[in-house]
């Protein structure tokens, strides 16, 4: 029996922040091949100058996300056979982030927004205090748990049309992190979180289109987290006005 190996037509975006274009490569298809395998094969066999970013290759580190046939995906866990369109693949740098070179984006703005959204822990106790027991079934813990598997891959950020049209918007990942911190019983400054997500680029800019939730590779639900932030910030708006009066 003869075996003919299928050759895929792969377009890879090459360029920098100023300019670029798609370059075409012919890549042999293999069983259980991922998009990251394809990019690595091109870099190893056809063009060693191709730049791309990855680390763990098992969906833990969140560094290999790219646009695959126009859709943001984690490339190390995306099988070619599931996304191949007529034997063609198009791989481009993540949307909504500036390009450094080829498939590598500058993720500073993404991580700066995590900080701007106050997605950091505000301790209630020091290391000398006993550890407070938190029931895994408590309502706050359940809500906090819903977002803790975020791997910071920026797929939701790339998928978000609000980020695309409003660069000030904090984005789904940062806001989901803020919601997680807000629901953490061990966090001491929930008002700081609400203030951080209530500014001009805050959660109230979300149009609830749901691209973040639809594309999250870990099946998280940033859209619901943002809805939660809108709800508690709206309730807090009247309470704070009453407290000031």
């Amino acid at each position: 029996m003869s075996f003919t190996q299928n050759i895929m037509d792969v377009s890879i975006w090459r360029g920098d922040a100023q300019a670029g274009a798609f370059a075409h490569f012919e890549v042999p298809a293999q069983k259980s091949q991922t998009i990251l395998d394809v990019v690595a094969w091109i870099q190893q066999h056809q063009d060693p100058t191709l730049s791309y970013r990855y680390a763990c290759r098992v969906g833990m580190c969140g560094s290999c996300a790219m646009m695959v046939n126009g859709v943001p995906r984690w490339t190390c866990r995306t099988h070619v056979e599931k996304v191949l369109e007529g034997n063609k693949l198009e791989v481009a740098p993540l949307r909504n982030l500036p390009v450094i070179k080829d498939l590598v984006t500058d993720m500073d703005s993404f991580f700066d927004k995590w900080i701007a959204a106050e997605g950091r822990h505000h301790p209630t106790a020091s290391r000398l205090d006993p550890i407070a027991a938190i029931s895994p079934e408590s309502a706050g813990r359940v809500k906090a748990n819903a977002g803790i598997e975020c791997i910071n891959c920026s797929v939701c950020y790339a998928a978000c049309d609000t980020v695309a049209s409003n660069p000030d918007y904090l984005g789904p990942a940062a806001l989901q992190r803020a919601w997680t911190v807000y629901n953490d019983a061990k966090d001491a400054d929930k008002q700081a979180v609400l203030d951080a997500v209530s500014g001009v680029g805050g959660c109230h800019n979300c149009h609830t289109q749901g691209s973040c939730t639809a594309h999250c590779p870990n099946d998280l639900d940033p859209m619901t987290a943002i809805a939660g932030l809108k709800r508690v910030s709206a309730a807090s708006f009247f309470k704070r006005r009453k407290a000031r009066a």
Binding site: V200, G201, F237
Partner: peptide, 8 residues
């Protein structure tokens, strides 16, 4: 662009 005051 849309802070909490305008949203409310």
């Amino acid at each position: 662009m849309l802070d909490i005051r305008l949203y409310m």
